[in-house]
Design a protein around this nucleic acid. Structure first.
Lengths: 341, 341
DNA sequence: CTTGTATGTTAAAACGATTTAGCTTAAATT
DNA sequence: AATTTAAGCTAAATCGTTTTAACATACAAG
């Protein structure tokens, strides 16, 4: 309770100087305030000796900066986002920032609320994984000039900095790999959504299929994300019966659930059907499958790293930097599940 | 940038009253300050109209409270902790708190640093998953009277509130289940550590084995957590060759890695060896194994829920509440892997 | 011998809330 | 009628910093 008793005033008194000087000396650039080197040394030494810890509330009240950023994502217990958060956290702590985290559960009203709460808390900027229906909140934020970086997903009609995967390339890679292995009847399993990243994955599939002169088969409207297991149980046998030779999935969860379903049906990969998953991490789970599973790999650490740096640049520039959209490169990790048996 | 322009003074001016009155009216208990009902209504209406958002830095500077709590755990990208964090987050947002999260990577010096950083940020209390070697930091914190709740792990020699699993019961359950299934040669696979929760799991195994008049076989010193896979590759065949009929694991990671190793060796569960895992979530991965896997289930949501409530009670009482140690009940989820084949 | 410039330091005003003590009136008690 | 009690409100101090403007002193240039 009585943790931070030592104030700047105590330090000043102990040294017989003004609080101003202490503040100057403790700042990042004491030279700017032309404090003498000996003074800097003297004050900093005393500060260390007395274990002086600046009061953040006071600092932030006066300066309007909090050295805190907010991270708003759909669900921290989703490993993909947890991994990204972890990277942001590391970057932040290395740069003197701390991180507030909030989950929206994909609900736009919760996003709006979190934005407000975090702004109240005085965060200097926000990193957001926007959910469906978040356009209004996001564009409002953009209009206000508040430092902001979107991650994983973006909106075509909003001009805002973002870090996303090159999703088109991701699924193109997958299609081409399957084609190279000799597959023709390749289906794309996705779900009903308006999320740009998922739609881009569909675009990538479409594009690659067309370039290969193959007929597209997209299952996107037929799946409700809340009851994946049942949906897949009826969808997958139908697909396979129709002659589908290979499956590409638009998300990690879809892929894992599908693998479980395929296994429970007594079928095997790639004998009965070839298989390419989408990595939102947790790929270790694939190791429990007897055959290696080919999957599209996202550079998870880079998401966090780039987003944080972009945001900080934005903060320092006072929200006046150019809009930057970083597209990260997917990588195809090829194992047995995409090869002709 | 110009987000929060409306201050309490603007409100007061607009209404022709004092800032004091506005502050009173906006507080949680305006009656305490005997503000008239009409005034409360009038002020709050105006506040809503002008979209007044109290400046948190100012509030926290003056009051010494921040309505922020810190959560320090070993790694947010570990699903068990991510799940708990998610629960704490939900509880917090329902109660007007926000959450700062930090990962220690099991390094005591990072823990010490995070405690300092978070205290600087003015958190009202801390929820900590202590790592090995954290005794000094924790006991220092306890001595200072700072509101604190440990989670998942605790220290026998430090008197501090905590929420932990009844680990002894957990492994006892597992042993008894295997014994009931007819297994006698049951080994406990753990690793070298001084963490109380892991050691308690060992104790539970010991106790149950003794009560069943069975000979203990504990593998605890032989495993280095950084190269689990290799270690297990040499350990497991040895155990099975020695006649071990069943395996109980002390952590989720150990269990999953072991299952992968067993599978890669061409052996099956429970035919070659019976198997009981330890749940730190991610149990869905078990579903990729052809046979159902028996595991010890922890009530994850409860960890977060209880810890948060304990902490808030502690904060409200100004760090003067009684020490409370909550032990949560494990549950054994019985599937095929623990049955005689 | 001014004047100008750089150097090192300080006094004092913010920042936006909370909180203490006190000031009016009106109502209740004696 | 005199005195206490309560209700409703306000002035002003305060929290611990940052930041602006200004004050000395020294030293160089004209």
């Amino acid at each position: 309770m009585k943790s931070n008793k030592v104030t700047i005033r105590d330090l000043a008194k102990a040294l017989g100087v003004s609080t101003t000087l202490v503040s100057f000396a403790m700042s990042d650039s004491p030279k700017k305030y032309r404090v003498s080197d000996e003074m800097i040394a003297k004050i900093r030494a005393k500060a260390k000796e007395m274990d002086y810890q600046p009061n953040n509330a006071a600092r932030s009240l006066r300066s309007g900066k909090s050295n805190t950023i907010g991270v708003i994502l759909s669900d921290i217990s989703n490993r993909f986002f947890a991994d990204i958060t972890r990277c942001i956290e590391d970057q932040a702590s290395q740069n003197g920032y701390t991180v507030l985290v909030g989950s929206t559960d994909e609900k736009p009203e919760r996003l709006a609320n979190l934005i407000k709460v975090f702004q109240n808390k005085g965060v200097d900027g926000l990193i957001i994984v926007p959910c469906e229906g978040a356009e209004s909140s996001i564009s409002e934020l953009v209009a206000s000039g508040f430092p902001l970086v979107l991650i994983d997903r973006s909106f075509d009609n909003i001009n805002v900095s973002s870090v996303t995967l090159n999703n088109i390339k991701a699924t193109s890679l997958a299609v081409n790999e399957l084609v190279a292995s000799g597959y023709r009847k390749i289906a794309f399993v996705s779900y009903k959504t308006s999320l740009t990243n998922i739609l881009d994955r569909e675009m990538g599939y479409r594009k690659a299929m067309r370039l290969n002169d193959l007929k597209e088969h997209i299952c996107a409207n037929e799946i409700d994300y809340s009851s994946i297991n049942n949906e897949l149980l009826s969808l997958l046998p139908k697909l396979i019966k129709q002659g589908t030779e290979a499956l590409i999935f638009s998300t990690n969860r879809l892929a894992i659930e599908a693998l479980i379903v395929i296994q429970s049906m007594g079928m095997t990969v790639p004998e009965d059907v070839a298989f390419i998953g989408f990595d939102g991490s947790e790929t270790f789970a694939f190791n429990l499958y007897p055959k290696g599973i080919t999957y599209i790999k996202q550079p998870i650490e880079q998401f966090g790293y780039e987003a944080f740096n972009l945001l900080v640049a934005n903060i320092i520039a006072g929200g006046k930097t150019d809009i930057v959209n970083i597209e990260l490169n997917p990588e195809l990790v090829v194992k047995e599940s995409s090869k002709k048996s």
